[in-house]
Design a protein around this nucleic acid. Sequence first.
DNA 1: TATCGCTATGAAAGCGCTTTCATTGGATTT
DNA 2: AAATCCAATGAAAGCGCTTTCATAGCGATA
Lengths: 358, 358
Amino acid sequence: MAGADWGRRAVRRIPRPTLQAVAERAGVSPATASRAMAGSAAVLPETVERVRAAAAALGYLPGGPAQALASGRTQTIGAIIPTLDHAIFARAVQALQTSLARHGYQLLLAAHDYAAAQEAAAVRSMLGRGVDALMVVGADHLPETWTLLTEAPIPVVLSWSFDERLDAIGFDNAQAGYLAARHLLDLGHRRFGMVSGFTEANDRARLRIAGARRALAEARIDLPNARIAQAPFTLAGGRAGLAQLLGLAEPPSAVVCGNDLLAVGVLLEAEQRGLRVPQDLSVVGIDNLEIASHIAPPLTTIHLPTAELGRQVAEHLLARLRGEARPRRIEMPIELVERRSSGPPTVENTVRSPIQAA
Amino acid sequence: MAGADWGRRAVRRIPRPTLQAVAERAGVSPATASRAMAGSAAVLPETVERVRAAAAALGYLPGGPAQALASGRTQTIGAIIPTLDHAIFARAVQALQTSLARHGYQLLLAAHDYAAAQEAAAVRSMLGRGVDALMVVGADHLPETWTLLTEAPIPVVLSWSFDERLDAIGFDNAQAGYLAARHLLDLGHRRFGMVSGFTEANDRARLRIAGARRALAEARIDLPNARIAQAPFTLAGGRAGLAQLLGLAEPPSAVVCGNDLLAVGVLLEAEQRGLRVPQDLSVVGIDNLEIASHIAPPLTTIHLPTAELGRQVAEHLLARLRGEARPRRIEMPIELVERRSSGPPTVENTVRSPIQAA
DNA sequence: TATCGCTATGAAAGCGCTTTCATTGGATTT
DNA sequence: AAATCCAATGAAAGCGCTTTCATAGCGATA
């Protein structure tokens, strides 16, 4: 539209006012100015006022790097996540950032897209750049990353799952899988399938599968790998997953999904194929995204309080930074939310077994 | 589950190895060590090797704050967005971060939740902490924020929309609204409604409304405020928005939505109310989220390349940092994606007008 | 062989803060 | 009135790097 206008402005280096300048203007020493700006120490209210005024007049902004170098604290906390493209992580980070900001901390963010090497680089980079504390997701990391993490001179918290080596705030992912499968089992299903995201560098996905398997095993039902479709964490992935399961010799009457995104994909694919949910197919997800309650039929799922997790991580890290003692392991509660995507199997879908005489 | 185990580990202050230590171990001066680590300057390959080895042996990580203080560069870029809870921003940030990381830059992220004061605080904080460049979203900012932004000694780019005062990479939001309404108009609709997000501190939302109005005005159709439902940017908001419009004396046969999230909410509400889309109601969104193409019926929408925007912002800022000249305004292309949520109005929905003799 | 010009390295001066330690002077105590 | 204590402030030493500026070699040039 408008003709491109070529900017030529060089990257200027206008010297910003220093604390020194503020101090001079206020007629105090840099030491006092520093204390006044920090607000904490014993400085006459009147002096504080004078310094504040001088700072405002000069448009003074404290220089982070200098503060960091002198104090050893950067007021910055790092978060390393798989990706922001999944609502769950985005939501947790949002909550984390909001909590941190309220306490004067900044958020340094890195996403690694499930690439272990990239994660290692991010950890190294953050540790170097100097964050006061760090959050990572899950327990799958390169040995090198583990070393960096456990030997870091700062508080580090593992989120989303657990590992003895680090403070952790997470969910019982296996239990999530268990609850989902158990629910379907209780409804009477016997022919299962699962749609999972890729399990590489993703202990949560593996644990959820393991949990579902445990529930099924209790009912003497096997869940071979052939009945677990692995797909990208997208709606399209969910659709493809269901398509794959439907191609099985004995297609499932119930499918457990690694998360809600996949579950919604499954629902959409089912609808498109004319399968009625839950009459022809029961679907359970994990996460409880906003859309889960809005889609038709509303999705039965395992609720994971992800935003709360973000808040807890912030609180934990901040407390550790204050030197407070904290539990090393905090398990966030999860629960089954029954909605209308799951129901008892219809007769033709039920495998007649001697035990099932109903 | 497992009994809470109370960690007592104090926040240790293990002195990390310094460049000085690396230099000694390599038998060179700190100056040479610095140059060797930077890779750039004229240092014998053999010396570089020696320094690298020493650094590795000691587990040396360059100290960011010190580097920043000495060099005046933090290798960090700031991004201030409304919220990560909307997929569009999350996606753009994800792309931005990935591009930055590839070039050795870190991302400092802040969300302000559409609160102007919080945004101002974030800008101040980032400028202080020292970012090498900054991205903000939209053109709605407090005067104070504008001052900070335009007088910042670093490259700043405004994203998502445009403003003469700053380099900008954005979309023609008005055109997006225009295209959406135009499409519906061309289909023959005459009774319009709009579901928009809140317009406060959100020039994008206002521009989209303005654009839609312009299109309608060309057809001599008025879009009074009463026909524009304002709702939160959520599915529930979209549902409520449609509910409101349906309560009108002359309910719309076509609705333009401020974004896809609202549009999907509208679709869901329509389905629940038994309205057929597009026979009874045509719906158009803006964004082209993944779900737009998967939901039933697939959503007609205006595609905005948000991930590409993130990438462009990274590229722009990095180029400016290198001192390269760049266009001050980059407009990302947008286009209508026709799907099945929009169609011609049915007869009973069409307002008989002298001009409309068909 | 004396001079010049490089190249690889070192010495040292900060970058802009925070923080310990010392100092001052007034209020309090005896 | 002398001794004591404390509150408020200042002096100065870094924090761990980068970056001039200077210097020592050493091959090339005249």
